[in-house]
């Protein structure tokens, strides 16, 4: 549905987005992840027609962004970062203005506003001035704004930033609800949120896509090495290392911190291999060590994210 080809954006010398190729299918929730300054917002801004790309092309369905900007804008609803609304308007007037701009007439504007007020739970603030709203409400008004024209594509730039945990859950619920029918693209640097809501995750770093896939694929694919952690009593590191090293496909055995109350903590890295845990357990059993802990470290998205975006 959306096709980006060799998309780049430079701010003077600084390259914010670097030759990105990306295809987005309809009906999916896509999460854009990346550290601050990775180029997430710039990419979304180009996608919504706010910025002109330095080079490359954006196609949405049969339309080209450079030529048919207006048609593409009609298909899109956009919530910019930190929801910069018109502060001196009342919430109702603001939504009414947006409805008119989306081409709704008076009666359909009214019923649409009514629907969105219900969906985004805006009853309490509908007659307040936008400037008096709390951050959470402002974000929800922004969300209502983005959905006003019943767009096929919803682009949300950090929709949950600065919200408290309850508000985050509420916004996330709304996103999930809409995501059943629409294409949603949203950026975030909260990993758990992306993991919980997205069908597809893209990690951007220095303007380039460094990972692309669903949460499971990313967890498996980032690197082939896995880790087992164990805590042992009555054991010396040298003995443990000698014993465990013998096992096939073990790559490395490391001490994790110092011995504390006679407990030795060990990290074993190994290449994927069936039955390795049984093997290791049998080895340990042959000694007179006391096994206190024995677990495989599951790779979190946090870890993958750090691996991919940490500076070398």
């Amino acid at each position: 549905m959306i096709h980006l080809r060799k998309l780049s954006k430079y701010y003077g010398e600084l390259c914010a987005v670097d030759q990105v190729d990306l295809d987005i299918n309809s009906g999916k929730v896509l999460g854009l992840l990346g550290p601050n300054g990775a180029g997430k917002s710039t990419m979304l801004r180009m996608l919504t027609g706010y910025f002109k790309p330095t080079s490359g092309s954006i196609r949405v369905k049969e339309f080209d962004m450079a030529k048919n900007t207006l048609e593409i804008k009609k298909m899109m609803g956009y919530l910019p970062e930190s929801a910069p609304l018109y502060y001196n308007m009342l919430v109702y007037d603001y939504l009414d203005f947006i409805a008119r701009m989306q081409g709704l007439n008076k009666s359909s504007a009214n019923s649409r506003i009514h629907e969105l007020v219900n969906l985004c739970k805006l009853h309490e603030v509908i007659h307040k001035s936008v400037s008096e709203l709390s951050k959470g409400y402002r974000q929800r008004v922004g969300l209502a704004h983005a959905m006003m024209g019943d767009p096929e594509i919803l682009v949300l730039d950090e929709p949950t930033s600065g919200l408290d945990p309850n508000q985050i859950v509420e916004i996330r619920e709304i996103i999930k609800e809409i995501g059943k029918e629409k294409t949603i693209i949203f950026s975030s640097h909260i990993l758990s949120e992306v993991e919980a809501t997205c069908d597809r995750i893209i990690i951007i770093h220095h303007g380039k896509i460094v990972a692309d896939g669903d949460a499971e694929a990313l967890k498996g694919g980032a690197s082939q090495e896995n880790t087992i952690n164990m805590s042992l009593k009555n054991a010396k590191f040298n003995d443990v290392e000698k014993n465990i090293r013998d096992i096939d496909s073990v790559v490395d055995v490391k001490k994790d911190g110092n011995i504390n109350n006679g407990v030795l903590k060990i990290m074993v890295s190994y290449k994927k291999h069936p039955g390795i845990m049984e093997h290791m357990y049998k080895k340990i059993k042959q000694q007179d060590w006391i096994l206190l802990e024995f677990y495989q470290e599951t790779k979190t998205l946090e870890k993958i994210f750090r691996e991919l975006t940490m500076e070398a």
Partner: peptide, 14 residues
């Protein structure tokens, strides 16, 4: 300065 231009500009207007 308020950033609202981003909203205005991404609405279907020329």
């Amino acid at each position: 300065s308020a950033g609202s231009y981003e909203i205005l500009f991404t609405l279907p207007v020329t």
